[in-house]
């Protein structure tokens, strides 16, 4: 179980995340939704230990221990163009490998399994620059799956993908949660979130405004006041 207690993040004197407390259970797939600038990315980064924050979590504070407990898929993730897909996915095993040690057979198996789950085994020996945008996202996803961490944080993993890749990425995340990984993904597509996720956290102006099932949480008031849309998908006037 992941527990967040009173998490606040300050950026340039402004609070990007305000006093967020929440709990995520093992194997849950949580959609973190909210308009642009509502604090979703900052909350994920704070959980991953990438930015300074106030408050506490039950996640390890040691950098390496934390890296074994949390895998993080950054928004607009990058990778070296001329590296092979297999080698990029293998970097997900970094927290498990000694600094100057070679990759073990167990690590290699984890890499192969992650590539299989993400459907990228057939282009494992291609270089990153030869892939399409959707294929690149799945490579990054495979790298996070290869870490084999109990918590997976994904920052807008399906933004800018076509419907096929959106569905395939969401399926991989859902499968990971069914195997026991807690998945928290920042998403903009509410319909996609409702279809795949167990629960939703709604962020607005840095606050965690609502936390619960989709039916109880995404009320007409929240849709109008937070997302500025109506239930039938029009702009709220």
């Amino acid at each position: 179980m992941i527990t967040l207690r009173n998490i606040s993040v300050k950026f340039g004197g402004k609070l990007a995340v305000r006093d967020v407390s929440a709990v995520a259970s093992e194997g849950e797939f949580i959609a973190l939704v909210g308009p642009n600038g509502s604090g979703k990315s900052s909350l994920l980064k704070a959980m991953a230990g990438l930015i300074p924050h106030e408050g506490s979590t039950n996640l390890p504070s040691d950098r390496r221990d934390r890296a074994r407990q949390i895998s993080y898929l950054a928004q607009n993730a990058v990778a070296p163009d001329d590296h092979k897909v297999r080698n990029i996915v293998a970097l997900g095993r970094t927290p498990h490998i000694g600094r100057l040690a070679r990759i073990s057979k167990a690590d290699q198996s984890a890499v192969e399994a992650a590539m299989e789950k993400c459907g990228i085994s057939n282009f494992a020996d291609r270089t990153f620059k030869t892939l399409s945008g959707g294929e690149k996202t799945r490579v990054h996803l495979a790298r996070t799956i290869a870490t084999d961490a109990p918590l997976l944080l994904a920052d807008e993993p399906v933004t800018a993908l076509d419907p096929y890749y959106q569905l395939s990425v969401m399926e991989v995340l859902r499968d990971a949660s069914r195997e026991g990984t807690t998945v928290i993904a920042a998403l903009h597509d509410l319909a996609l979130a409702r279809r795949f996720c167990d629960r939703v956290w709604v962020m607005s102006e840095g606050h965690l405004l609502a936390d619960g099932t989709f039916d109880k949480t995404l009320t007409p008031e929240i849709l109008r006041n937070v997302f500025r849309i109506t239930r039938d998908g029009n702009i709220a006037r």
Partner: peptide, 20 residues
Amino acid sequence: YSGPALRVLGLGEETAQSLG
């Protein structure tokens, strides 16, 4: 000694940090 870290930094500083 810094070499293995450079491999991971190819994924960007944020991702590298998340990998320890």
